[in-house]
Amino acid sequence: MEAFTAHTGRAVPLRRSNVDTDQIIPAHWLKKVTRDGFEDGLFEAWRKDGDFVLNRPEREGASVLVAGPDFGTGSSREHAVWALQNYGFRTVISSRFADIFRGNSLKNGLLTVVLDQAVVDRLWEITEADPTAEITVDLEKRQVLADAPDGSTLTAAFELDENARWRLLNGLDDISLTLQNEADIATYEAARPSHKPRTIDA
């Protein structure tokens, strides 16, 4: 996994709540068997509208998505995370994320940042007023920074559990970490009751 320490970039303010993973990447894209090449499928239906925020020239190259509450609901498709990353997003800010999407994003190095809706509202205002305004997401300091057009600086702290933060900062692979405790798994397996189901005779 790609490590995440801090990132600064321009933003896409997405004023929609309940952005489900079917919107992020429609089902017909899920037939692909790779982890790349999903960028053209990102928000495919909404991008057919020329006025959709992602289509505006001033948003080209933006890497911070600022979305409404309950982002990533619905399907467990990790393709949603890959599509956001393939497109160029490094981080998504919202007041609430669906659990599975959040788990998937953190396993891929896409940092999902939870901030109060009032802060999200302010980030929308700042980045709508000035499309060149940059947002900094600093995982080491657990802090989001943005310079407002009036010269003030918005600073907001965010929470992320220490273990997830450590894995992200170091770009650690979960499977390798788990296999360090392989002996614990073997011990557990040896004690499993015989009535537990098996798909094939072992």
Partner: peptide, 10 residues
Amino acid sequence: FGIGTSQVEH
């Protein structure tokens, strides 16, 4: 519970 592809691999 539902999981993502990274967790499927895990």
